[in-house]
Design a protein around this nucleic acid. Structure first.
Lengths: 224, 224
DNA sequence: ATGGTTTGTGTACGTTGTACGTTACGCCTA
DNA sequence: TAGGCGTAACGTACAACGTACACAAACCAT
């Protein structure tokens, strides 16, 4: 009752909202940290209203899913060289890159698993490469999930590091009692500062690939 | 005004609340899914009131940190055998087990990195084992973070799988068009059902360890 | 008993996701 | 040109959340 003055309406034109636009806006908002991604914030970003979005997205989780699916779609397809194990490395790096380029998305990827159809080609690429190396079936699935796991976990460390962790570790080690209780940890304080770096990643990836290759060679040698 | 009847007070005895009790309660609540872990829920679980908890924990995040630190403290220390690379495997499995036993904690671990002091011995154990294998400095830190990354990522897949994902993948592949577009993925539909299984984990771990060992052997051989 | 310190509580505010019913745009028909 | 109607956009409202703040009750030392 009281004073429902019409107020200067600035209603938007019909059809002015699309799912793409919403995702664009959501991504812009999320870039400042996934925690800032709220329906209201996206609406503000789009100069719309919260409920307007619900015409295109039935729930916030669905929006996040769509957003994650979108960024997974930006993974670059690994090009074939003659060397399957090298290609597997390219695959791994390309996947890691996509996570690296969208760090805000990493925490969400853990709560919103397998976001959508854009995850399919990723598996397909990996299986193709592995197949060229003679790795199929369970071994292929396991190897594939191993690489993805490594990247997911790694990405979470990178994000955590940027987010301000690791600092606490450094602080702990300043305490002499702590340093004495954990001498080995204290002794790697310097390498620890490269924790999550590309150099370390390359080192780990090289280890994993060496293992994949050697075990494949062994099983092929033994099996036939 | 109206009816602020005193109501049957059941005030709690002094000292009846401790941080340990709060963490116990929080863990019981969280067991039903991290999303159900709210200050109010923990208070109800403890038959207390929300604000009472704030005497012991200054923020919800702090409570979560403490909780995660607590479960990290439950990782079993890997016992030394004569074989360092085997011990590294035990380390990895023990770490994985702790995540497996507290699946509800996994999503939180990604948003609350390096929860507390209980993380320190874990690193120390790993560095000791790696040192026995002659791996130190950057290589040790990288290898260590590689194993943790693998476990974190793997755990997130396991949780996701239980949470109901993977089902969507299976459904997608029922669609003949999808199956045709991603033939390799379709062809591993069966192995995919063991996605995240212990068998697959052992396979990946064996690969990683083989790589760690071989590369270490090589660098030692070349270096001296 | 008295006063101070510690522990528990009630109320309340701001923010979130979103259910529900209403408004008004802009095309389609007459 | 007038009217009607489907649908996009909106406003309001609610429950649940974290937690600030002021206060009350229990305890201890005197």
């Amino acid at each position: 009752m009281s004073e429902t003055v019409p107020a200067p309406r600035n209603r938007r034109r019909r059809n002015s909202l699309t799912l793409e636009e919403i995702l664009d806006g959501a991504e812009r908002v999320a870039a400042a940290g996934i925690a800032t991604l709220t329906i209201r914030a996206v609406a503000t970003e789009l100069e719309s209203s919260p409920m307007a979005l619900y015409r295109y997205v039935s729930t916030k989780d669905e929006l996040v899913d769509a957003l994650l699916n979108r960024i997974l779609g930006r993974m670059e397809e690994p090009q074939e060289s003659g060397n399957w194990i090298e290609d597997l490395g390219v695959f791994a790096r390309n996947h890691r890159d996509v996570l690296n380029r969208h760090q805000w998305a990493v925490p969400a990827l853990f709560t919103h698993p397998v976001p959508g159809p854009n995850a399919l080609p990723i598996g397909e690429w990996a299986l193709r490469i592995l197949g060229r190396g003679g790795i199929t079936g369970d071994a292929a699935v396991a190897t594939f999930s191993g690489i993805l796991s490594l990247n997911y976990g790694w990405a979470s460390f990178v994000v955590a590091r940027v987010g301000g962790a690791g600092k606490s570790l450094a602080e702990d080690l300043v305490n002499p009692a702590v340093a004495q209780a954990f001498p080995l940890t204290a002794s790697v304080a310097r390498p620890m500062s490269s924790y999550g770096s590309s150099e370390h990643y390359e080192l780990v990836l090289a280890q994993l690939l060496a293992g994949v290759e050697s075990r494949q060679a062994r099983s092929t040698g033994a099996g036939g």
